[in-house]
Nucleic acid binder design. Structure first.
Lengths: 125, 125
DNA sequence: TGTAACTGTTTACACACGTAGTCGAATCGG
DNA sequence: CCGATTCGACTACGTGTGTAAACAGTTACA
């Protein structure tokens, strides 16, 4: 099992489409991203290839084209990215990040409410 | 005022030393990072130059060498990085990230305690 | 005062990334 | 069966990054 290579920003955008639909052709992805990013289909194909090489997705031949689907789960990716981010900036823990946001007044009412609910649930366990 | 160019990973490590000590020479930085990363002094000088060009630090001549000190504040950098991270992965808000960590059982007792205290303080405002 | 030591500046280079064009093979339509 | 179309694979290219050596100017010591 090769070391899970890191997914680049642009690649993750393509991957996100696959997470959303489960699977898709290059054309589907291009259509899905049409408005968001203005990428040529060529670009998307390159990104799909790189994701393939990195083992993050798989390609199943269907007629003359490939159907791509994720191998790397969104959850795994989120965890990996989050951890490396928190390690780099906040000593690997979540609380200091929240504290930073709090000090900077970047916590919305909604954030606060959700956090409170979350903690309440945790205590009920 | 030129657009605040983005600080790379390696650059941020050097910058962190300056935040810690307020100011330092290239030699100081090399010494400070000696154990952590195994960089040649040459490498550190390159990184300092790039930080200079990006306007993230300043250099004050002292005798035959420069004393470098941060221009970009750690807080600013934290905010910027955090925001772009949260935007990319969690719709720009903190709560979903914490929820993710909670689901994945990545919240330490300490995290939970700190979060609870933080919320208590917020309500007392 | 000449030369060694030091320190910043220049140059280097491989690799990842964003972005995309070209090519060759397969296929579809007539 | 042949030309047109359609795909994926290969190639391309500028830029940022990690990493560092070479060079040049200046200072300090013998």
């Amino acid at each position: 099992m090769k070391a899970p290579e890191s997914i680049s920003e642009a690649e993750s955008v393509v991957l996100a489409v696959l997470w959303e639909r489960g699977s898709a052709t290059a054309e589907d992805v291009t259509a899905a991203l049409g408005e968001q990013r203005n990428w040529q289909e060529s670009t998307i194909k390159t990104l799909l290839s790189r994701l393939l090489q990195k083992g993050a997705i798989r390609a199943e031949k269907n007629g003359r084209r490939f159907i791509y689907s994720p191998l790397l789960a969104r959850k795994q990716w989120l965890s990996k990215e989050s951890e490396s981010f928190l390690n780099r900036l906040f000593g690997g823990r979540v609380a200091p990040l929240v504290a930073h946001f709090s000090r900077e007044r970047k916590l919305s009412k909604r954030d606060i409410r959700e956090l409170r609910d979350l903690l309440r649930d945790l205590e009920g366990e």
